[in-house]
Design a protein around this nucleic acid. Structure first.
Lengths: 153, 153
DNA sequence: CTAGTTGCAAAGAGTTTGCATGGCG
DNA sequence: CGCCATGCAAACTCTTTGCAACTAG
């Protein structure tokens, strides 16, 4: 089993805590390191990288490579929401991850499998693009958190 | 705009040639460097990186990061192969990249946009999974299933 | 001739590894 | 006490930059 004896340590608790607090977004290893150090929590970067690696290989955390960014991003994967079945959308603008559950997309999956002979692995696939909110900003970043007029799509 | 005169040099020709020969797959900067050096073509890595950068910013070449890989991949953007319109499938097993052209998937795109308020960017999205061959299955090959090069290592 | 181009070497950034110490169970 | 975890420092990999020499137009 993958249950190779795993000790519960202060550092791991804190890294996991940080991941859970940021489960709605992706976070870099460096951000975790800096966050914890800012809290006077002594955690070496080696530990962070190593633990993150372990979590990724266990499927508990997902690792992404974002366009432009040079470092990897990590995000906690909630095991209870069926992430292995549905698609994931990540906004390249705000970085938010959307879980897409929809029968239509389930059909798409079957379509690709039946008509194109390809088995999509949802745990490794992320559709990149722009979410409605960010698309409504008209390239004005930093401003406009509210969409003004014609935000109906 | 790009009014800055661009000289035609032997090195650039060769880098471009390498990209064109691999237009059906993504290739790393290092692969380009090694390919050219294997052909006794003297091209410094600085030049490769710099030229690649320029091509990317001009939209002539696409850069992306693949799962697991630590280095960036580049691929020539053929204006005629509609890569910006269709989906890409990458077999995590054999590494081959498939260009998926299918009306059904175009509909799916609209569905995501209309029902989930998200604009998928095909130039940044790659669906990961397993191709039929690697899955050990022999299903019907769809007509719209166009296969292109893979990792021939 | 002049501005863009090249490439060595060295700097950087992010990540991994070696190894001795520390701590969970 | 045994085994896993930790973390410093150094190694590594990929990429970028400084700078002097070079070359296409």
């Amino acid at each position: 089993m993958a249950a190779s004896t795993s000790y519960k340590t202060k550092q791991r608790d804190q890294i996991m805590d940080c991941l859970l607090k940021n489960k709605d977004r992706h976070i870099t290893a460096d951000e975790i390191i800096r966050t914890l150090n800012a809290e006077k929590t002594e955690v070496g970067k080696t530990t962070v990288y190593r633990y993150l690696d372990k979590l990724v290989s266990q499927g508990i955390v997902r690792r992404y490579f974002i366009e432009g960014g040079k470092s990897a991003c990590y995000q906690f994967m909630d095991q209870n929401n069926g992430c292995s079945r549905h698609y994931h959308l990540k906004c390249v603008d705000c970085g938010q991850l959307f879980h897409l559950e929809c029968d239509y997309l389930g059909e798409m999956d079957s379509h690709i499998r039946d008509h194109h002979d390809f088995h999509v692995d949802h745990s490794k696939t992320v559709l990149y693009g722009q979410c409605g909110t960010c698309a409504g900003k008209f390239n004005v970043r930093g401003a406009a958190f509210r969409k003004t007029g014609g935000d109906n799509k």
